[in-house]
């Protein structure tokens, strides 16, 4: 049953002399909800940025649905500076811009919300439909694509209704309360019809009730849209409740992984992370 959707192999990301991710390998299987946790500055968002092509990994490979999509090895100046391992293991160089990654079926949200500021809620989601167009520039400008356009608008409306944003659809995206902006980011990501959804701290800034609602929501969209979900999160309640498996990184290195129970009882994790936040629970 466990069909690989995403696989990272020996990923190392080095900025100058700083190793942000060190030899990270992980797998996300179809239909799973997998969490990536770790203390602040552990390199979690960097992992997302490598997967989505924002950064080019220094070494290692990324596979999507068992096909290599990204690969690199230390080159040029980095050859001498490289501080990671497995330097000789990868020979391919494969890079993709973030839009190519998204068109493969990997959509993401951002930790510090990045909505299109001048647009309404509806337009924000509709813009994400641009990727799925078949019409060319002239067809679109001369409205020869009215069927496609009408279709995109209808799907956008359905998505907004599903996420409970239809009543604010004509408001400016930035005028929404913080929690709704997070939902809007998820709606926008879903509009690209992804198979794998990367959520970067979706519960940041939410209170416990909102976090619980979000937990249920993520589970429900996973089933409804047939998604695989990979989450970065700090709220332990959400993580423990939602995750099929958890990866824990600290200083860019994988320190533990397994089911929520396993991770919770792992000495290394408690030392690095959970021990600090015990009083929260």
């Amino acid at each position: 049953m466990s069909e690989n959707v995403l696989k990272l192999e020996n990923i190392t990301m080095q900025f100058g002399g700083v190793v942000a991710i060190n030899d990270l390998s992980l797998e996300v299987n179809k239909g799973e909800i997998v969490s990536l946790i770790g203390p602040n500055g552990a390199g979690k968002t960097t992992v997302f940025n490598v997967i989505t092509g924002v950064y080019e990994a220094t070494n290692g490979a990324v596979y999507y649905e068992d096909k290599m999509i990204l690969s690199n090895h230390p080159q040029g100046k980095m050859k001498k500076m490289y501080a990671g391992t497995d330097a000789g293991k990868f020979s391919d160089v494969m890079t993709k811009t973030p839009d190519r990654i998204t068109s493969l079926g990997i959509a993401r949200t951002f930790q510090n919300i990045r909505l299109f500021k001048s647009m309404t809620v509806f337009e924000n989601v509709l813009t994400a439909k641009h990727m799925l167009r078949k019409s060319n520039l002239f067809g679109a400008a001369l409205k020869l694509n009215h069927r496609e356009e009408a279709n995109a608008r209808e799907e956008t409306m359905q998505l907004l209704e599903r996420l409970g944003l239809d009543d604010v659809k004509d408001e400016l995206a930035t005028s929404l309360p913080y929690g709704k902006q997070r939902y809007l980011e998820i709606a926008r990501a879903l509009a690209t019809k992804p198979k794998l959804l990367l959520l970067d701290e979706p519960a940041a800034g939410m209170n416990p009730q909102e976090t619980m609602a979000l937990t249920a929501f993520i589970k429900s969209i996973r089933d409804e849209f047939d998604l695989t979900v990979f989450i970065i999160e700090h709220h332990m309640n959400l993580v423990m409740d939602i995750s099929d498996r958890i990866y824990v990184i600290d200083f860019g290195k994988l320190i533990s992984h397994g089911s929520p129970e396993e991770v919770q009882n792992d000495e290394a994790v408690i030392k690095a992370y959970l021990g600090v936040s015990e009083e929260d629970e």
Partner: peptide, 30 residues
């Protein structure tokens, strides 16, 4: 005007508003 009101116009505005988000939504920047 027609172009700006089309899906391409929305993509242009998305690039203006936030390049990183636009790219993450599958809009080829170049």
């Amino acid at each position: 005007v027609l172009l700006i009101n089309s899906t391409y116009g929305r993509a242009f505005k998305a690039i203006r508003d936030d390049e990183i988000a636009a790219e993450a939504m599958g809009i080829n920047l170049a």
